[in-house]
């Protein structure tokens, strides 16, 4: 059980680091929002499941899973609201220069 939870947590950390690199490297708001949503979906899932496995069965595990479900409901809403505000205020998506 301990080893399984360590594997989950390390995989989650990998996705969190990739998302942070993406937030630095990608060129504009719209593509950065993809990196943030990568963290929110798979990174948070793997991290929180690993932590819940570490704690073992009980009320705490149930509470951590409730937080996870809450994250899955809330995050698409926030990302959509931000991207829609960016699009409506007239921002143009970045395009690769064709040379």
């Amino acid at each position: 059980m301990e080893i399984l939870s360590i594997i989950f947590i390390v995989a989650g950390l990998f996705f969190l680091i990739v998302a942070a690199i993406g937030v630095i490297r990608l060129p504009d708001v719209f593509s950065r929002s993809h990196a943030v949503s990568l963290t929110d979906s798979l990174g948070a899932f793997l991290m929180l499941v690993g932590i819940a496995l570490h704690g073992g069965l009980g009320t705490n595990m149930l509470k951590i899973l409730v937080v996870l479900a809450l994250l899955y409901i809330i995050n698409p809403v926030i990302t959509h609201a931000t991207v829609r505000a960016a699009l409506r205020s007239g921002l143009k998506p970045w395009k690769k220069e064709t040379s």
């Binding site: 937030v23 950065r32 963290t39 948070a44 991290m47 929180l48 932590i51 937080v67 995050n75 931000t82």
Partner: peptide
């Protein structure tokens, strides 16, 4: 909007940090 997006990412990370 980059700033708002960054704050959103910070909050997700802070939730994980609190549980750890």
């Amino acid at each position: 909007f980059d700033r708002v997006l960054g704050l959103n990412g910070i909050s997700t990370k802070a939730i994980i940090l609190l549980i750890v």
